[in-house]
Amino acid sequence: MSAIFDVAGVTKSFGGLTVNRDVSMRFAAGDRVALIGPNGAGKTTFVNLVTGQLVPDAGRIVLAGDDITRLDTVARVTRGLVRTFQVTRLFADMTPADHVVMTILRRMGNATRILARFGGDSAANDEAYEILDALGLGDAMRRKVGEIAYGQQRLVELAIALAHRPKVLLLDEPAAGVASSDVPRIERALERLPPTLAVLMIDHDMDLVMRFAKRVAVLVAGELVFDGAPADVARDAKVREAYLGSYGHASRDA
């Protein structure tokens, strides 16, 4: 199967410390991949390399056949590589509808128009309404983001991501900080992501990961030690060692 997104042998060092060593991951359209790993494994660096905040020391990143290794964040987003943020980054004084309309206008190439009325494009408005309504934000979409619940703000992050119509979506802990009663709403939204979209989720929450992912990758001390089926991840010796240390062997013996 041809890869829509290919991260090939990416390495990044800060001074003498190699934070990502020869990390390779391939994504096909429709993939649902979770990247997990203990604290300090280099997940954040990997996210920054993929989204263009950092440039790798070695390796290539290819999106839909184009080498994007040296492109900045903006160029990657416009090519269809979109992320959500671990901590919501929204404009407190604007409404969810404003955020989504702005994103749609960007996609249409109209976001920087000066002689136009923001909110006056009915096609953009209709699409924004559809996206927000499908995520259950019908009541909140006209209120300022600063006033709505955190769980709803997380859904706004997803709504923005969908408005981009991305090829590859990177979800950075989509349920982080959300009250456990609201997590099912996020999960339902994740289940309804477009089937052709390749999704990489970075998360600690193993319940969420196991329900969402069809494939799990494990990053330990900057190296990818596992990339395979969720069912196999807990049986993998390297993963057990990384998470449980020598106790991993003890529990297997028990």
């Binding site: 989204t51 964040t73 903006v74 987003v77 992320r83 980054r89 929204l90 404009f91 702005m102 960007r106």
Partner: peptide, 17 residues
């Protein structure tokens, strides 16, 4: 709107493309 966004969070605006 973009200017107002850039004032509040430039990283978010770049992530909007």
């Amino acid at each position: 709107m973009l200017c107002r966004g850039a004032k509040e969070d430039p990283v978010r605006v770049e992530a909007l493309g």
